[in-house]
Design a protein around this nucleic acid. Structure first.
Lengths: 130, 130
DNA sequence: CTTGAGCCTGTACCTACTACAGGCGTTAAA
DNA sequence: TTTAACGCCTGTAGTAGGTACAGGCTCAAG
């Protein structure tokens, strides 16, 4: 199948397919005599793997690591679990950061009088003369 | 004060000071005859404002809007509150996204046997033959 | 007068894509 | 058979929000 067909079947942006190839994520597809890429089921499966891993928030480098384990065929559950737990830890830290942020923002904005008042606690918090 | 001194006083990266100037966030500082930037208290205050707004997760464009309101001097609490609430909404959506992610990841990894097992539910979820 | 620090500019790099320009190739209708 | 429209090819630029480095001046201390 062509790059466009692959993109359509997977829902991946057609340019992103080329991008992944450029950074060496999926195996390079063979080409026709005129240089057109030709994909098969295995390429499609690999692309779906990449897309799902990205949806789960794994970085490109994480995905590269997962792919090399899985494509190598000799991964263990322990290895994958370690990578997943490391990623999960990062996600939880990011959530905690954002929750602190959310608290700060909502507490500050709760004091807003609103309307045409020329004073604003949000601005005060931002200026906060040292 | 010089750019280095400003950076040191505020804790801002020295290159970031120049970056903010380049994108037109703070007012351009005057220069010495030899081209050195000269900052005063007002520049420092503006930079701190930018840094605090960034810490609160406002985008650069948000900060630009806040600065123009605040530097203009004729902002109202209502205007600022609207911008803050819009930002807060974005933060909450991001948190919700990450929490869904966290749920998916932690549920999946919970089924891992670990160790040398050649099967892994995380990999299964990623491959998930359509 | 020299040496080292600090400033200047421009530019490249980072993540993870996305989009576009200009040029071929392919395919379907007229 | 021709031609129009679409799809693919490549390279490059742009996004956010910085960070870093190279090469060249300038400045202050000893």
């Amino acid at each position: 199948m062509t790059r466009g067909e692959l993109a359509k079947r997977t829902g991946c942006n057609i340019e992103t397919v080329r991008y992944y190839e450029k950074i060496g994520l999926p195996p390079d597809p063979p080409r026709t005599q005129k240089g057109y890429r030709v994909y098969d089921r295995h390429h499609e499966q690999t692309l779906r793997f990449i897309m799902r891993a990205r949806e789960l928030g794994f970085t490109i480098e994480d995905v590269r690591g997962l792919l090399s384990l899985v494509d190598g065929g000799n991964y263990t559950c322990g290895e994958i679990r370690d990578k997943t737990l490391a990623h999960l830890k990062a996600v939880r830290e990011r959530i905690a950061d954002l929750q602190r942020l959310e608290q700060t923002l909502s507490k500050t904005v709760a004091d807003c009088a609103g309307g045409d008042a020329p004073q604003c606690p949000v601005v005060d918090a931002l200026i906060k003369e040292a």
